[in-house]
Design a binder for these strands. Structure first.
Ligand SMILES: Nc1nc2c(ncn2[C@H]2C[C@H](O)[C@@H](COP(=O)(O)OP(=O)(O)OP(=O)(O)O)O2)c(=O)[nH]1
Ligand SMILES: [Mg+2]
Ligand SMILES: [Mg+2]
Ligand SMILES: [Zn+2]
Length: 565
DNA sequence: GCCGTTTTCGGCCCGACTGTTTTCAGTCG
């Protein structure tokens, strides 16, 4: 798939054009790049079917550039720009405080092409001498370079939770803060978050900002003002705080929750209706310019003739248009889930017993769970191996079933291997539910999966792309083909709730939601991890899922199609 | 360069903070 490749070229072109101070084209190229990046099909397929211009933001010009690149592997326009401006735009502008204008100036005046050049120029004190720059700008660049070195990857949503509650606690302990909400990508429940964004009201904004910037773990204050401050705390994590009047709370929430593209879309819509939308409110543009709405989010959306859009949907993937037409989904909620169909115990690599898991599941109010320990092919120390091991496991599950007020299904997480799965038929025949997973690199994985779907009574295909966020890329599978096959064989796809997995990813969940049923599972390896369910729910919501799209919102009687018998 | 419940031409989101400036451009959210 060349989607990413082409998107990256267009992003780079946008950068070059921005340096050249070309108006509006950067915006056009970025828009096209974003569409191509988030495309749910192969751009070469779209090209073959002559549908390139159907892509949002792709017109005649960009269409021709895509064609040129696909046909020749080369894009003259891009090569020319690169020759003209041989700078690493992405790397340079990733330094805090450096944008296109600075890149241009540093290239023209000091021949800075990349980070190394930048560092050298700053260390030698050359930047401070430039017109429009000074001692401080140079120091800031040096600081930015240092930050970029420690600055790690985006943090997992799951890792952010404890940090967020700690920060919230500290702010609410302060006498200067009133309302406090964590917004940005955290509120939208993106799988990873770039920073922590906080919206607050205060009885004394200046004192509040003072206190915030002097928290003990603050290592650097990036900016500090009456309404907005940014700090870096340990590990290079950035925290942005915005303080706003109570009466602007709703519009402030919309602004700071984002996403950026959602905001722009709402603001465009406002303009078309002769309104102006900013973080302070929605205003009429003409006459008295009076305020129409601002106190709560619902008011603002309503004034724009939109249904309330839940934060998880605010990614500009069609939610504004859906909200105009009353076509937003009624999103699944955590209380809709009746059982968890993927968990491990100390019979394989889990740390708790079957009984402990059942007890906790009962406490959570589940009607059913499935114990799904690994088969002998798993790369763990002591999986159940022999048929007699699995018989004992079954007996234990039967015993637990008599003790607790929920149905404990006997399942297994089978490994997909070179030929079939790691469980013999005699074991498969004992099971109530068969999960299959890919954990290894196999040749032709799509074909292997289809073969397994054909040969075994598979119920759920778990963590389908076997990704580990920030660590392992998702598998490159023919998902269209697999979804169609899964549907035919009554196989459901998992949304795995482990914070480092969140797999199937939400954008693909959204794409296939009308073709296949999903199951949201925790894949818990301990009692505690049964509470990971919320992370799976968030991703399902980001994927526009309703209760009806998810099998484990149903009663056990209605799960027949994925059970082995 | 793209696009159209106002449009095929003329818009394209809007505002806070900083540094270097003597009035604002650049960067970022
Ligand atoms: N209107 C408008 N709002 C913006 C813009 N940039 C950012 N915002 C708003 C929407 C964002 O969700 C919010 C927080 O900005 P962030 O840079 O922290 O982005 P966000 O939290 O969405 O993603 P992140 O995980 O931090 O990368 O500020 C912009 O250019 N225009
Ligand atoms: Mg953020
Ligand atoms: Mg931020
Ligand atoms: Zn598992």
């Amino acid at each position: 798939m060349k989607n990413k490749e082409i998107a990256d070229i267009f992003y780079e072109i946008a950068g070059f054009l921005e340096i050249k101070d070309v108006k509006w084209k950067p915006r056009a190229y970025r828009r096209a790049a974003r569409s191509i990046e988030t495309l749910s099909e192969d751009i070469e397929k779209i090209y073959r079917e002559k549908r390139l211009e159907d892509i949002e933001g792709v017109g005649e010009n960009i269409r021709d550039k895509i064609i040129e690149y696909l046909e020749t592997g080369h894009l003259e326009y891009y090569e020319e720009l690169k020759k003209d401006l041989p700078v690493d735009f992405d790397a340079l502008t990733s330094i805090e405080g450096i944008g296109p204008k600075t890149v241009k100036k540093l290239y023209q005046e000091l021949d800075v092409n990349d980070i190394e050049d930048l560092e050298e120029a700053a260390r030698k004190g050359k930047i401070a001498d430039l017109k429009g720059f000074g001692e401080k700008s140079e120091q800031n660049i040096l600081k930015g370079l240092d930050m970029a070195k420690i600055n790690q990857k985006r943090m997992l949503l799951g890792e952010a939770f404890p940090l967020v509650s700690d920060i919230k606690q500290r702010l609410s302990d302060s006498i200067y803060f009133d309302k406090i909400d964590v917004v940005g990508s955290f509120r939208r429940k993106k799988p990873t978050i770039g920073d922590i964004d906080i919206l607050a009201t205060s009885n004394n904004p200046e004192k509040a900002m003072e206190e915030f910037c002097n928290f003990e773990d603050v290592v650097e204050v990036l900016e500090k003002g009456k309404t907005k401050s940014s700090v870096i705390v340990s590990d290079g994590l950035e925290i942005d705080l915005r303080i706003i009047d109570n009466e602007s709370w709703g519009s402030g929430l919309i602004y700071f929750t984002g996403s950026k593209d959602h905001n722009i879309n709402l603001r465009r819509l406002s303009n078309r209706k002769s309104y102006k939308l900013n973080e302070y409110g929605l205003y009429r543009k003409e006459g008295e310019k009076e305020k129409i709405a601002s106190v709560c989010e619902k008011d603002v959306y309503k004034a724009l003739n939109l249904d309330y859009i839940p934060p998880e949907l605010r990614e500009d993937t069609g939610e504004v248009e859906a909200a105009e037409g009353g076509k937003l989904p009624k999103l699944v909620e955590i209380g809709d889930i009746r059982g968890d169909l993927h968990m491990h115990t100390n019979w394989s690599d889990g740390i708790n017993s079957i009984e402990e898991m059942a007890k906790k599941a009962e406490k959570r109010g589940y009607n059913y769970i499935a114990i799904t320990d690994h088969g002998p092919g798993a790369k763990i120390t002591d999986p159940p191996q022999s048929i007699s091991d699995w018989k004992k496991l079954k007996e234990e599950i039967t015993r637990i079933n008599e003790k607790y007020n929920l149905k404990v299904l006997f399942g297994a997480e089978a490994e997909i291997e070179k030929d079939g799965i790691d469980l013999v038929d005699e074991i498969v025949d004992m099971l109530d539910l068969l999960l299959v997973a890919l954990h290894r690199k196999l040749s032709n994985p799509t074909e292997k999966l289809i073969d397994v779907f054909n040969r075994y009574p598979v119920g759920i295909w778990v963590h389908p792309l076997n990704r580990k966020i920030n660590k392992r890329e998702p598998l490159d599978l023919n998902l269209n083909k697999l979804v169609n096959k899964a549907k035919k064989e009554n196989i459901s796809l998992e949304i795995n709730s482990q914070p480092h997995r969140l797999d199937l990813p939400w954008d693909l969940v959204k794409k296939h939601r009308n073709k296949i049923d999903y199951v949201i599972n925790t894949d818990a390896h301990s009692v505690k991890q049964l509470d990971y369910l919320k992370f799976g729910i968030y991703q399902a919501r980001r994927g526009w899922l309703e209760k009806e799209n998810i099998l484990n919102t149903r009663k056990l009687d209605n799960l027949q199609k994925i059970l082995t018998k």
